[in-house]
């Protein structure tokens, strides 16, 4: 469905060198990405700011020519076959609008029906679905320029889906959404993905999007893929561990060691200690602890994807 082989994009930028001279320098935004995405997959494409996510998506959708490497979507080469590809993919670039700025949302949708030449019944059916799921009715007749970011974004997602694309590229589709809108968008996408009929590639900085939606996680940094697999695989690879947080009546004695754990943090003058459960179970650790200290409260914390990802980003 989607194939990239050793895909690269260099931007040439001019940087000041000396007082008047400007020097040409190459920035490697995407530096040899190879990925294959099968039909029906939902792939989360994440990475720190400037990692090359948007650049990759631009190349996949045909608006940016790769410097080198191969890329194909539906067997089409995106840039030269852009107009044909456009009929079959849906794209949301969260930071820009594909809607007609001065026209009401409803009219943008009607126009898109003609631009993509969608039969009226199909159009009607898809639009109805989006109106329900994304709660569009309240602002269907508002000109796009008067919509709030979150309202517009729901409109953008609808616009990307009205022609029934089999592949969706979403670049930060939940940017700027409130909690309720985010949930609406997520469950909408989840439902879409559950049918297995649509392939989704989405970038985000909200890892909850990924946890909720994507079975596959691709992490990119400095233009290179640094992880490709499930979230569990990521935890395993980085040895993320559960941890035990305990509140104590009095600080632990100096030099205290709890077998199979390491101290991950001490707060409140030693009244709260966090142990990373390296090689022991939570039960064993608790048992070991209550034997020597008076524990007021405790909780077991699952590994946090944000921590793992932060570690991954820092390592890069």
């Amino acid at each position: 469905m989607i194939r990239m082989r050793d895909l690269r994009k260099d931007f040439s930028v001019r940087v000041p060198a000396g007082r008047l001279r400007r020097e040409k320098r190459l920035v490697s935004a995407v530096d040899g990405v190879s990925l294959t995405i099968e039909p029906g997959e939902m792939v989360g494409y994440i990475g720190p700011n400037g990692a090359g996510k948007s650049t990759t998506l631009k190349m996949l959708t045909g608006v940016l020519s790769p410097t080198s490497g191969e890329v194909s979507v539906f067997g089409l080469t995106p840039v030269p076959q852009r107009t044909r590809l456009a009929l079959r993919i849906g794209v949301v670039f969260g930071q820009r609008s594909q809607l007609w700025w001065d026209l009401p949302l409803r009219e943008s949708f009607r126009l898109l029906r003609h631009v993509y030449q969608v039969p009226p019944a199909e159009h009607e059916q898809r639009l109805r679905r989006c109106r329900e799921m994304l709660d569009l009715d309240a602002f269907l007749d508002t000109p796009v320029r008067q919509l709030s970011l979150g309202q517009r974004m729901r409109g953008e997602i609808t616009a990307a889906l009205l022609h029934g694309p089999k592949v969706l590229f979403l670049d930060e589709p939940t940017i700027g959404l409130d909690v309720v809108s985010k949930q609406a968008v997520r469950s909408f996408l989840a439902e879409l993905g559950a049918t297995g009929a649509v392939t989704v590639v989405l970038t985000t900085h909200d890892l909850a999007d990924i946890e909720r939606l994507c079975d596959r996680l691709v992490v990119i940094d400095h233009g290179r893929v640094v992880h490709d697999g499930t979230i569990e695989a990521l935890h395993a690879r980085y040895g993320s561990r559960r941890s035990l947080v305990v509140d104590l009546d009095s600080p632990l004695p100096a030099g205290f060691v709890l077998p199979g754990t390491s101290v991950a943090g001490v707060e409140a003058d030693g009244h709260r200690v966090t142990f990373a459960l390296d090689e022991t179970s939570a039960a064993a650790a608790v048992a070991g602890l209550v034997a020597v200290a008076s524990v007021r409260d405790l909780s077991v914390v699952e590994p946090d994807i944000e921590d793992v990802v932060a570690r991954l980003y820092r390592a890069g």
Partner: peptide, 10 residues
């Protein structure tokens, strides 16, 4: 924003 224009089949 020209990207949005290019993403259409026209």
């Amino acid at each position: 924003d020209i990207a949005s224009d290019l993403l259409r089949p026209v």
